[in-house]
Design a protein around this nucleic acid. Structure first.
Lengths: 117, 117
DNA sequence: GTAATACTGAACGGGTGACTTGACTATTGA
DNA sequence: TCAATAGTCAAGTCACCCGTTCAGTATTAC
C-alpha cells in the first residue's frame, strides 16, 4: 500500500518541467491529440511527442493511436506515488513541530547535560 | 491563495533527487547538522552542502549556523506549492473521469459536427 | 599556538534532459 | 494517385545538474 512511494522520484521529475505541466493542464480539460497539445506550446511537435512519452512512462497519461493521430488522456492514478510521499512526510514533519519548535527542542537537548535555568 | 502554485516547478525539481529526499527523511526525525545529514549518504560533504542549499532555496528547510556547524530543520510550508498543485489538478482530473469515460466523450464530440456515418 | 573539525566556495568533468532538424512511415482527403 | 497531415525515429547540440577535488575560513579542542 505504501510501495508506490518508490516511484515518487520519477513522477516528481516529470512534474518539474513547465511544458509537461502545461500538457497535463490542457488534458484536464479533456483528451487531446499530440498536435493539439503542441499547439499552445512554443516547442516543436517532436519535442511534444517526447514529453508525452515521458509522461506516459511514469504513468501520468495514456495514449492510443486513432488513425494517423494519437489521443492522450490523463491517468489520475499516476499521482498516487507522490500523494503518498507527501501525506506520509507532511504528517511526520508536523508532528515534530507540534511538540514545540525544533529550535527549542534542540536547545533543550543541549541543556540536559547542563541543568535548568 | 493559489499563487503558491507558481513555485511548484522548483519544488518538484528539488524533490526529484533521491539524496535530497533522503535528507528530508532524516530531518523528519529531528534537526541535524550538515555532517549528520551527509553521514548516511554515499556522497561527499560538499555535495551534501549543495543539496542543503538547494532545499533551502526552494523553502523546504531552514538552517542556521551554531558555532562551526550548521543545523538544519524542516520547513513544512515548503510543501504548500505542490500540495496546491496536486489538489487542484486531482480534482479536475477526476471530475473529468466521473462524467463518463473520456473515450466515449471524445467519440460523442466527433459525432456532433460530423453527424452520423 | 597548533591541530582537528565543520563547513564553504570555486572550478571542473560526466551524464542527462530538453530541444532542434531532417528523414521516414502511415493515414486521410481531393 | 498525389499531396497534405500527424506522428515517429535518429542524430546531434546545448545547458544544466550532480558529483568530485582542493583550497580557504571559522570554530573548537588540546
Amino acid at each position: 500500500m505504501l510501495q508506490y512511494q518508490e516511484q515518487a522520484g520519477p513522477v516528481f521529475r516529470a512534474l518539474a518541467d513547465d511544458n509537461r505541466r502545461a500538457i497535463l493542464a490542457r488534458l484536464s480539460e479533456g483528451p487531446a491529440t499530440v498536435s493539439e497539445l503542441a499547439e499552445p506550446l512554443t516547442i516543436s511537435l517532436a519535442a511534444t511527442v517526447q514529453h508525452v512519452q515521458s509522461l506516459e512512462r511514469v504513468g501520468l497519461l495514456t495514449s492510443d493511436k486513432e488513425g494517423r493521430s494519437r489521443t492522450c488522456r490523463l491517468k489520475p492514478e499516476g499521482l498516487v506515488p507522490i500523494e503518498q510521499w507527501i501525506s506520509e512526510n507532511k504528517a511526520l514533519w508536523e508532528r515534530r513541530l507540534d511538540r514545540f519548535s525544533d529550535a527549542l527542542e534542540r536547545a533543550a537537548a543541549k541543556n540536559v547535560e547542563g541543568d535548568s535555568s
